[in-house]
Simulated assay, not measured.
Amino acid sequence: MKMCLIFIKKELLEYSRNKKLFLMLIIFALFGLLSSLIAKLTPIILESVSTNGVIIQMPEPTELDSWAQFFKNIGQMGMLTLILVFSNQMSIELEKGTLVNLFSKGLSKNAVVMAKFFVSLIIWMTSCLIAFTITWLYTGYFFENTISIELLLFALSLPFLFGVLLLSIELLGGITTGSTVGTLSFVGVVTLVQLILSIKTDWNKYFPIYLVTNSLDVLKNTNTTVFHFPIVITIILTFVVIISSLIAIKKRQIV
């Protein structure tokens, strides 16, 4: 347990030194800031543009427009940022052989996997909460916060859970392929398969990616029951992938 805590501290220190921690926090803070600003300024910009005498008129932006921009940012650029930042969290250790000395001092392979997952989870959670808080504050400033905080947090939990699944998939990809390119390819294939299968409207609500592509529907319809099944599937898959990672790391020869 002591070695595991030491490794967690080592991971946090490393993310601080290589600026990845600050990169995540700054990017997601910008997501929070820009979500409300874009919603507020887009109609003004479009109405000021005229083409051949035709003036584009936009409806008055609302609170929902701000959150729509927020979930779009998190679901697209947010997920891409998450994937890129943590793409080499396992592969770099295997490529450089930095784990050999730690294993010789009593650190277990399971502790490495769980520590890396825990640290990435904390950074991901913190980033989401920062973006959410800034968006909520600016939405209240530009518009009015009428949507309940409980409903907003539930909506936030949907892309958050999908991000947690991506983190576990990256761990497994890093262990099995041993390279950053292999990890990115692994995540890309898994995501692409979900996108292809979810094209069929009868199937899309059964895949984890439904949590990202339809999270705004919670605020539009206040209906959360449709998300219960993909939430359960996502949680189960996350546990399965983590267990698979623990099995894979035990079988992998670390030199």
Rank of each mutant, 00 (worst) to 15 (best):
A155R: 03
F103G: 05
T191N: 11
E150I: 15
F118H: 05
T238W: 04
K40A: 10
V212G: 02
I249D: 01
R17Q: 13
I235C: 10
L167N: 11
F71Y: 14
L211M: 08
I149T: 14
F160A: 10
S66P: 12
Q89Y: 09
A155W: 00
V190P: 00
K220D: 11
N223P: 13
L137H: 00
I147S: 05
I169H: 03
M79T: 14
Y15T: 00
L197R: 06
V193Q: 06
P208T: 01
Q57M: 10
E95T: 06
S215C: 12
E11P: 00
T81H: 01
I209Q: 08
I196Q: 06
A111K: 04
Y206C: 09
Q89D: 13
I249T: 04
Y210W: 09
L184N: 08
L184Q: 06
I209S: 07
L171V: 10
T238Y: 04
L129R: 01
T135K: 02
V181M: 12
A248V: 07
L99H: 03
T224N: 06
F71D: 01
L156H: 00
S157L: 08
G75S: 05
L246N: 09
T51Y: 14
K10E: 08
W136P: 00
S185L: 13
T201H: 14
T81I: 08
V181P: 04
L171E: 13
I38C: 04
S215T: 13
E150A: 13
L25R: 01
I242S: 02
N214S: 15
A111S: 15
K220W: 10
L165G: 01
E150S: 15
R252M: 09
L192Q: 02
T133A: 14
N18M: 03
N214V: 12
